[in-house]
Structure formats: C-alpha cells, structure tokens
Design a protein around this nucleic acid. Structure first.
Lengths: 132, 132
DNA sequence: GAATTCCCTACTAAATTAGTAGTATAATAA
DNA sequence: TTATTATACTACTAATTTAGTAGGGAATTC
C-alpha cells in the first residue's frame, strides 16, 4: 500500500513550480535538475498534470510550465488523484470491483471508512499548506 | 495505493474464525471453502497470522485454527500490518527509505500526516467492531 | 497405519512500476 | 529561413511485486 513515484514526483513538481514562479515559464529541464528526476520520466508525469489542466504551457525557446491557479486553489488530493489514479485502498470500492459477496461483507464498511479518512486528509491540504 | 489480497483475505479469515468459533478448531479447508480462497494461498496467509501469534493451532484429524484472543482484543491495524507488512504509504517514511533531501523536503510532514490518519483509523477498529 | 490436518520452501505467471527511447511539433532568435 | 530549444506523443522494456501453484514433510487422530 504505497503511493508511487508518479504521485510523489507530481507533488514535488507542483511545489517546485509554486516556489520558483516568477511569472515566466519554467522549463521541464530546470525542474528535473532541481528535483533530480529523469527528464523523460518527468515528461510523462507533467503530461498527466497538464491533462488535468493544472498547468499553463508554452513551447519554444522561452517555453515551459507554470501553475494555472494559485497554490491555495490546488487540493493535494486532486494532484494525487490526477497522477496516481484513484486513492481507493481497496479494489472492491471501485466501480469495476463490485463483488457478489458485497451484500453481507463484514469488511466493506471498514474499508469504506479507511477510504474516507484518506481522501478527507489529502483534500484538507492545499499546495499552499505544503509550501509554508 | 492498494491493500493487497494478503491483508484483505487475512481480515476475512479472522472474521470467519470469530463468527464460526464453537470452541473447536476450524480447519483451513473449511475457511477456504467459505471464503472462496485457494487452499494453498490461504496457507501462506494464515502462516503470517500464526507467526504473529494471533491463532491457536492443532494438527491431525480434528485440527485447525482458532483465535487466541477475544475479537475485541485484535486491532484491525495489527492484523493488516502482520500480513501486509507496514501500512506506510510512502517509502521515505520507512527505516530504509530515508533520503538526503529529507532535511528540507516540503512533502515530508504531509506524508507523515497521511501515515498518521491511516494508522489511527485502522487501530481504532477491533475485530469485534467488524462483526457487529 | 491410513487419513487428515497443519507446516515449510521453492517456483512461476501476470500485472504493475519506473523508467528509456525516438520522433514529431511548435516557437523563438540569429 | 534555419538552427536551436522547448513541449507533445507513443512505443518499448527491465525490475519488482502480487497472487498465486506445487510438492514435500511432520503431527495427530481414528
């Protein structure tokens, strides 16, 4: 039960962008260097953040990325879900995972509760909270 | 970020033992049948619970397993940790996972907090809670 | 002593994770 | 207009983890 590098790196990227923002676009290369993450792998992670419309991007010589919102407007939970997929700790709780034992499953509500505390926690923190 | 079958099955085994307890030993075969889990795989899971001294066992014809304590004396968290390994959602928080960026890591305390809510939740529930 | 049970270790197929690699596309600046 | 620098997209791959299988052996009871 681990958060993968995708979620962890994504969070670091977002923090990096928040801290180093100066109005200009910040290149992937710069982020990768500061964060010591492979260029090519970071591309894929940023692609996920981009698809979720968390970033503004520009190509070309002065291109790069910047946050599309204020740090306090990003819930950490949203960043993680965009990169990790869902944070549901149990397959049974997902849409595809419904099983025929569910009706009298003694563990279901326990797992549901775990899912709740996890999501409530990650959604209670914003990017701004992490920076300070 | 998922709980594996080991933890999920282990919890179902413990509940099965709690519900079907009648003073006698309950065979792995019976549990496996009721829970629709492969005999051989279940053996391995039970071995972990056994190693943690959560079960009493007996061999031979009337042998099997029973709980070594009352249901309310088992924290669900303990059952999961015995079978899943630790529940720490981030490698960095474990003994082996300390990294050289930790001193000014902006995410560390966030992850620590997540670790806390998870462990507090699973430790707040006992086997008895799940049965009722 | 045959049947039934737990005990222990090794192996393996499938899925997931953590990347590499290569190419195309867009923008800028000389 | 062309070289340079950047993002965008897709395919592939090595390593690890997960979810089991398989095959003995040892204890106990009938």
């Amino acid at each position: 039960m681990k958060i993968s590098t995708k979620g962890r790196y994504a969070l670091r990227v977002m923090i990096d962008l928040a801290i180093n923002s100066n109005g200009k676009y910040i290149s992937l290369k710069d982020i990768a260097e500061r964060q010591e993450i492979s260029n090519k792998y970071l591309e894929q992670i940023i692609a996920l953040l981009n698809k979720a419309e968390y970033l503004e991007t520009a190509r070309g010589n002065t291109g790069g990325y910047k946050l599309s919102k204020q740090p306090k407007e990003y819930k950490v939970g949203d960043i993680l879900r965009a990169t990790e997929g869902d944070l549901t700790p149990i397959y049974c709780l997902t849409e595809d995972g419904k099983c025929n034992r569910q009706k009298d499953c003694k563990t279901y509500s326990f797992w549901k509760g775990l899912d709740n505390v996890i999501n409530e926690y990650v959604d209670s923190k914003t990017l701004e909270d992490l920076i300070k």
